[in-house]
């Protein structure tokens, strides 16, 4: 089932949580809504689910209006951030809940409910926990119960709010791969909210990067990392080295000094130059576009980094650059920086 979000706006007491958001999610895709807290990603997920309503705009499932249907009628599976398991019900009864509350012709006979629940528990690999209560489970197990419960109503859309947020790092990685597999096996369109870029990049077909109620970029994990559309995306995903610059007459300046780098068509006026630390080469300070003083050099495992203080018109900035092993850098010496790959963003971007 495809999802269309059209011009959704949502405000809370003067705070704009979502600002004219548009998004198309094709059937069968697994999409991650990625952003810092307050970026509106959870609000968007809850609006798609029908747990909240927008001030204006549309939500369509397979082209049909979804906003006139309540959450119960939308048939979406929702996995809550802290799982929201019914604490007085066993694992089995938690999963069976959605089947038991059906009325009239939709109501399944008890045997069918039992069969379906057993099948789901086997699918999420916790059939041996059926009689336990939520309080007796580990975080990862609760997560699986929450997922099985959401899947019990045979949803064609699966929505997950920070599904791994409450788990420790090791379990998180394990469950991530397993969720990806599960998504492949099931006929569902999945949307997952996360603030963890690693999670989004590893798991999703496409990543929707959000900031301050707007969508900054939609793309495959490779696209958002390699070709960030805005400075925000460049900063938020992966490591960034950032320098203030000016674009004058289509040329790039650092203060009064022209820099021999392409301005990439950025708008006139103040701009930022962004690069990945490992895509910056060290060079002779006289010939490099940037140069500065080495403040510190750190080695952690296979990675070696240097803090370099660069003089800019407003004072100075400290950037971090990758240092190849074998390169002898003296603290206090001057070193030049040549970005191999970089992006220039105007003040608006």
């Amino acid at each position: 089932m495809s999802i269309d979000v059209v011009n959704i706006t949502k405000t809370y007491k003067g705070f704009t949580a979502l600002d004219a958001v548009n998004l198309h999610i094709p059937t069968g895709e697994l999409v991650a809504l990625l952003g810092p807290s307050g970026s509106g990603k959870t609000t968007l997920l809850r609006i798609i689910a029908g747990l909240e309503w927008p001030d204006s705009g549309e939500v369509r499932f397979d082209g049909a209006d979804a906003l006139n249907r309540s959450v119960g009628e939308r048939n979406v599976g929702f996995v809550f951030q802290h799982y929201a398991l019914f604490r007085h019900m066993s694992v089995f009864e938690n999963v069976a809940f959605g089947l038991r509350v059906r009325k009239g012709a939709d109501k399944l006979p008890e045997a069918a409910i039992r069969a379906k629940v057993s099948e789901l528990l086997a699918l999420v690999q916790i059939d041996w926990l059926a009689d336990r209560y939520p309080a007796q489970l580990s975080g990862g197990q609760r997560q699986r119960v929450a997922l099985a419960r959401a899947l019990a109503i045979s949803p064609r859309i699966l929505l997950l709010d920070e599904p791994f947020g409450a788990l420790d790092a090791k379990v998180r990685k394990e469950l991530r791969r397993w969720l990806r597999q599960l998504h492949e096996e099931l006929p569902v369109t999945s949307v997952l909210v996360t603030h963890d870029q690693e999670e989004a990049l590893e798991l999703a077909d496409r990543v929707v990067v959000m900031g301050k109620g707007r969508i900054e970029q939609i793309g495959t994990p490779g696209e958002v990392y390699e070709t960030p559309a805005t400075a925000f995306v460049h900063d938020f995903i992966g490591e960034s080295l950032s320098l203030p610059a000016d674009v004058r007459g289509g040329r790039l300046f650092l203060g009064e000094r022209a820099i021999a780098l392409d301005s990439q068509g950025a708008s006139e006026g103040p701009a930022r130059l962004l690069a990945r630390p490992h895509e910056v080469d060290l060079a002779d300070p006289a010939q490099a576009p940037f140069f500065g003083k080495v403040l510190a050099v750190r080695t952690f495992g296979p990675i070696r980094r240097a803090d370099i203080q660069i003089v800019v018109p407003s004072g100075h900035v400290v950037v971090e650059a990758a240092v190849p092993f074998g390169e002898g850098l003296e603290i206090g010496s001057q070193v030049g920086l040549v970005p191999r790959r970089y992006r220039v963003f105007g003040a608006q971007a």
Binding site: G50, W53, S70
Partner: peptide, 17 residues
């Protein structure tokens, strides 16, 4: 249930409950 414009009512926060 509530529609897209129902949430304009400000006395209470809208909810699915």
């Amino acid at each position: 249930m509530a529609t897209a414009t129902a949430s304009r009512f400000t006395f209470r926060k809208p909810s699915v409950i």
